[in-house]
C-alpha cells in the first residue's frame, strides 16, 4: 500500500491497489504514480495540481523460499531474516527438515513444485535451491521460472549448473528463461564457510533487488 500525504495540509490517506480502489487524492487521480511507486518500491514527492504530495511506499515483506534444509540454509535463514525476508524452507526429506535443525521455523515437507505452487510467488519473492539434487531443485525451478519472482539462484558448481541448464532446456525452457537463473548462485567473494556463502547469496539478491545487477 501507499500512504499519500499532502505536504501543505498534512492530510493523508492510505491507498491499497486493487480493482475497486479509488486513486483520487486532493483532487488528483494518482493511479499511475502510485502503481509506479509500488513497482519500483520507491517513495517520492510528486507535484499535483493542489500542491506537493508525498507517496510513502509500503510493499509486502520480502520473501525467500529456500529449497533444501541443508547446512547452508541454517546460515542463510538468520541473515535473510535480518535483511527483512520472511523465510520458508522446503525439503521433503524428513531427516534434513527435522525441527531440531530448524528451531522455530516451519519447514514444508511437500515436494518443491507443489509447495511453490501454493505460495503465490510474486515480484517480492526470491527462490534459492540448495539441494544439488535434480529431483528437488529442478521441480522447484520449473515453477519458479514460470513466476514473477525477482531472483532465482541455484547452488552448485559450474559443471552442475551446466547439466542443470541442459536438463531444463530439454524440458522446454528457452534462453530467456534460463538467463534468469543465477548459477552458481552468489557474488564471487571467495566464500568458503556456510556463513560466507550465505552472505554472497544475499549480496547478489540485494544487488538484483536494487537493480544493480550487471
Amino acid at each position: 500500500m501507499v500512504l499519500a500525504t499532502a505536504l501543505d495540509s498534512g492530510d493523508a490517506r492510505l491507498v491499497e491497489p486493487g480493482p475497486d480502489e479509488d486513486y483520487e487524492f486532493c483532487g488528483a487521480d494518482l493511479e499511475e504514480e502510485i502503481l509506479k511507486a509500488l513497482s519500483e518500491n520507491r517513495s517520492s514527492v510528486i507535484a499535483a495540481p493542489g500542491g506537493e504530495i508525498f507517496l510513502n511506499v509500503f510493499n509486502p515483506a520480502l520473501r525467500l523460499v529456500i529449497v533444501g534444509a541443508v547446512h547452508i540454509a541454517q546460515a542463510l535463514i538468520p541473515m535473510a531474516t535480518a535483511l527483512g525476508y520472511d523465510v520458508t524452507v522446503i525439503d521433503p526429506r524428513g531427516a534434513f527438515a527435522d525441527g531440531q535443525r530448524f528451531a522455530g521455523l516451519d519447514v514444508s515437507l511437500d515436494w518443491p513444485d507443489e509447495a511453490l505452487l501454493g505460495m503465490a510467488l510474486d515480484a517480492r519473492t526470491a527462490v534459492v535451491t540448495l539441494t544439488h539434487d535434480p529431483k528437488l531443485d529442478d521441480a522447484a525451478l520449473a515453477v519458479a521460472l514460470k513466476s514473477d519472482v525477482f531472483f532465482i539462484g541455484c547452488l552448485g558448481s559450474r559443471k552442475t549448473h551446466d547439466a542443470r541448464l541442459q536438463r531444463l532446456r530439454q524440458a522446454g525452457f528457452g534462453k530467456d528463461s534460463l538467463a534468469r537463473i543465477h548459477g552458481p548462485v552468489g557474488l564471487d567473494i571467495g566464500a568458503r564457510s556456510a556463513a560466507e556463502i550465505a552472505l554472497s547469496v544475499l549480496a547478489q539478491m540485494t544487488q538484483v533487488l536494487n537493480g544493480r545487477a550487471p
Binding site: N59, P60, A61, L62, D86, G118
Partner: peptide, 14 residues
C-alpha cells in the same frame, strides 16, 4: 493459492 507470508511478516517499508 495463498500468500505464504506469515501474518507477522507485515510490510517492508523503511
Amino acid at each position: 493459492m495463498n500468500d505464504s507470508r506469515k501474518p507477522e511478516a507485515g510490510l517492508a517499508g523503511l
